[in-house]
């Protein structure tokens, strides 16, 4: 991987983000239906609308609005939340940290469970274990989050018998046991679909690797099966799994909106829904832009990881 490649990749991410700012801005500010009227409601007096328009800079031409918003964004100033009367960067920043904690937990959970599961399924191909794992995966990917969430709530968070709280949040830096108790159900809900996805991917990749010449060669060198599977086969199956995980980050970001709402997790998803319901435009813009950034960066990161996993991959 050359420095030139990294530079060009970062440049292209920047370009993507510029396009995203256009899209975000266009959809929330330029489309028909004045934002001020949408916020104040159709019975607002013209004076009130005019005042709000001035406050939102809606009286300026669209490109001036865009430029002032973008220059604010570059300086870390996303404006003031219209509803919460707080700086958007503060509101979004806190929610982002909370969401990152949840998504990160889900992702770690998925990675440490799904990859070995996929490997085990591939090794026991055609046997009972493989079948069980297949059933688990199909269920995982067939059930949408709101169904699994409800099921998990009924089983593990019923008022009397439940082991986990039904919702809420404690930061890990406040109390780790409390945080873990709160994070289990939403993280599992979020991770189930991805687990199914990724374990299937690892399984099919691994099955292919297991039938390759170099695995046969490794066995005929007299290596034990443990080394053949975990040292020779698995590393060769991971690169495609990482590619899938990075695509699934997009799915994860979508899932977070549903899951946070169900489990009352004070993250970006909940904030976005709140902002949409209340037409808090600066917050909507900031959250959308942030999600797009996360997605672009995680794709970039996955390409870097793939290059580390497979020495043949050379970006130039």
């Amino acid at each position: 991987m050359t420095i030139g490649y990294l530079f060009r990749r970062l440049l292209s991410i920047l370009l993507v983000l510029v396009i995203v700012t256009f899209a975000v801005f266009a959809i929330t500010a330029v489309l028909p239906g004045n934002a001020a009227i949408m916020i104040l409601g159709e019975y607002a007096t013209p004076d009130a609308v005019a005042a709000l328009e001035k406050q939102l800079h809606l009286d300026l031409p669209w490109y001036m609005q865009y430029l002032s918003w973008v220059s604010g964004v570059i300086h870390g100033d996303f404006g003031m939340s219209l509803r919460l009367s707080l700086p958007v960067s503060d509101v979004v920043g806190e929610a982002f940290v909370n969401s990152a904690v949840l998504a990160g937990t889900a992702l770690v959970l998925v990675t440490i469970i799904a990859i070995p599961l996929g490997a085990i399924a591939a090794v026991s191909r055609g046997k009972v274990m493989d079948l069980l794992l297949a059933v688990f995966s199909y269920m995982g990917s067939a059930l949408p989050e709101f169904v699994t969430a409800t099921l998990l709530l009924v089983v593990f968070a019923a008022p009397k018998t439940g082991v986990f709280p039904a919702g809420g949040f404690t930061a890990p830096w406040v109390s780790i046991p409390d945080f873990l108790a709160h994070v289990v159900l939403p993280a599992v809900t979020l991770g189930l679909v991805l687990m199914a996805h990724i374990s299937r991917q690892v399984r099919s990749e691994m099955s292919e690797v297991l039938s390759s010449d170099f695995i046969r060669a490794a066995r005929l060198k007299g290596l034990n099966e443990k080394r053949v599977i975990w040292r020779h086969a698995l590393p060769n199956s991971l690169a495609p799994a990482v590619a899938v995980i990075s695509l699934d980050i997009g799915y994860l970001l979508g899932g977070i909106i549903v899951v946070e709402e169900i489990f009352a997790w004070p993250g970006l998803g909940r904030l976005l829904i709140y902002a949409l319901e209340n037409r808090d435009l600066p917050v909507i813009q900031a959250v959308t832009l942030l999600l797009a950034t996360v997605y672009a960066l995680s794709n970039f990161l996955s390409d870097v990881i793939i290059a580390i996993l497979d020495p043949r991959v050379r970006y130039a």
């Binding site: 010449d213 170099f214 060669a217 490794a218 066995r219 005929l220 007299g222 060769n236 996993l309 043949r312």
Partner: peptide
């Protein structure tokens, strides 16, 4: 295997592990 009987294969580019 590998100690008392070993094998040399047809295609060296597929019989070596590409990531090791």
């Amino acid at each position: 295997r590998g100690q008392r009987i070993s094998m040399v294969f047809q295609d060296p580019s597929t019989s070596l592990n590409p990531t090791m």
